[in-house]
C-alpha cells in the first residue's frame, strides 16, 4: 500500500538543542499511527517538519507523495493539522474563524462545521477568548477535520478534553479511518490513543526507541499475577520460577497447606497455565497489562541515558 507519510533519517537541530536525531517511520494510507513520548521528545518537531512549518536539518520527508518543502499550498488543503500549542485569535467567534480557514483551505461541505461542533458540544457563536481550554481545543479539532482531509496530523489532540469528549474524539478518529483518511496522532500518554492507533512509535530524546502495534506492546507488557493455591508457597514458587518473564515479588503462607504468591509476569499466558497444571489453584488474578508502564520502561531503555527509569511515577 502507498504510504501517506514516509520519513527517513529525519533530524532537526535547533540553536541549542537537537530535537530529532534521525528517525524513520512510515504511515500507510488509511491507517492510524500514534507517536508517544514525554514532553520534549520531539513529537511536535516531527509534525512541524511534515507541514513545512520548520525545515529538517537532515533526512527525507514525503507527505502524500510529495516533499512538503517543495509542494505548494494544495498539499496542505489535503491535510488537517492541530498544533500542540494551539493558539487562536481572541476577538473572533468560532464560526468566523472556521469561515476564514475554510476560505483558504476549503472547500468545506455545507453543514460540516455545525455537525462537528454539535458532536463536540461546542458553541460556534461565542468569542474565542471566552472559551475554556477544552472548548478552544474543540475549535482546533473542528478546523482540522472540517474539510475531510486525506491526512490528519494531530498534536496532542486529547489535551484539555474531558473523558467524555476524549471518547467522542476517538469516535471521530474511527469515522475518519472508516472513510479511508490517514491519521497521525501524538500523545504523552499511550492510554489516550491506544484504542485509536494501529501502530505506535515510542519517541525519546529525538530517537524512536520502538515501533510496534498496540497488541505487540501489550504482549510485551508486564502484568501483575496473584495465585492462591492449596499448596505451600515454596512449592508454588518452585513451580512458577522457571517460567520466562516471571519476576517473583512476594510469597506467603496462609495457614496449613495454603499459600499465596505475587509476581510480575510478561510471558505467555499458555505457559503460565501449563506451569500451574499440577497445582490445586484456589484463585488466580492476572491483571490487564499496564501499557503506560511498558512505555515508561521503553523511555528508560537504551539507546540513551536512562533519564526515565521504569517504575518511576509519570511526570
Amino acid at each position: 500500500m502507498e504510504n501517506a507519510i514516509s520519513v527517513q533519517g529525519l533530524a532537526k537541530r535547533f540553536a541549542h538543542r537537537e530535537a530529532l536525531r534521525g528517525i524513520d517511520f512510515e504511515i500507510p494510507r488509511g491507517s492510524v499511527f500514534g507517536v508517544i513520548g514525554p514532553n520534549g521528545a520531539g513529537k511536535t518537531t516531527a509534525m512541524r517538519c511534515l507541514l513545512d512549518i520548520i525545515r529538517p536539518t537532515a533526512g527525507s520527508v514525503r507527505v502524500l507523495g510529495t516533499d512538503p518543502r517543495r509542494a505548494g499550498p494544495e498539499i496542505r488543503r489535503r491535510i488537517g493539522y492541530l498544533p500542540g500549542e494551539l493558539a487562536l485569535e481572541r476577538r473572533i467567534t468560532g464560526r468566523r474563524m472556521m469561515d476564514h480557514f475554510a476560505a483558504i483551505s476549503g472547500p468545506v461541505a455545507p453543514g460540516r462545521v455545525e455537525e462537528l461542533a454539535s458532536r463536540l458540544g461546542l458553541e460556534l457563536d461565542r468569542q474565542s477568548r471566552k472559551l475554556s481550554k477544552g472548548n478552544k481545543q474543540k475549535l482546533g479539532l473542528v478546523q482540522a477535520f472540517m474539510h475531510d482531509p486525506e491526512l490528519l496530523i494531530l498534536d496532542e489532540p486529547t489535551s484539555g478534553l474531558d473523558p467524555l469528549m476524549q471518547r467522542e474524539f476517538l469516535g471521530m478518529v474511527e469515522d475518519a479511518r472508516g472513510r479511508g483518511q490517514t491519521l497521525f496522532l501524538s500523545s504523552h500518554l499511550i492510554g489516550e490513543i491506544e484504542q485509536a492507533a494501529d501502530r505506535v512509535a515510542i519517541l525519546r530524546d529525538g530517537l524512536i526507541v520502538r515501533t510496534a502495534t498496540v497488541e505487540e506492546l501489550r504482549a510485551g507488557a508486564r502484568r501483575r499475577l496473584r495465585v492462591l493455591a492449596a499448596t505451600d508457597p515454596v512449592t508454588l514458587a518452585a513451580a512458577l520460577k522457571p517460567l520466562p518473564g516471571l519476576q517473583l515479588l512476594d510469597a506467603e503462607r496462609l495457614g496449613e497447606g495454603a499459600g499465596a504468591l505475587e509476581a510480575r509476569f510478561s510471558g505467555e499466558v499458555g505457559a503460565l497455565l501449563h506451569a500451574l497444571a499440577g497445582i490445586e489453584v484456589l484463585d488466580l488474578v492476572l491483571e490487564e497489562p499496564d501499557l503506560e508502564e511498558a512505555v515508561l520502561e521503553l523511555y528508560g531503555s537504551p539507546p540513551g541515558n536512562g533519564r526515565h527509569r521504569a517504575g518511576e511515577p509519570r511526570p
Binding site: D52, P73, R76, R77, P83, A87, I104, Q143
Partner: peptide
C-alpha cells in the same frame, strides 16, 4: 503556525 498549515 496554524495559518501556514492551511492552504496558503
Amino acid at each position: 503556525e496554524l495559518t501556514l498549515a492551511h492552504g496558503v
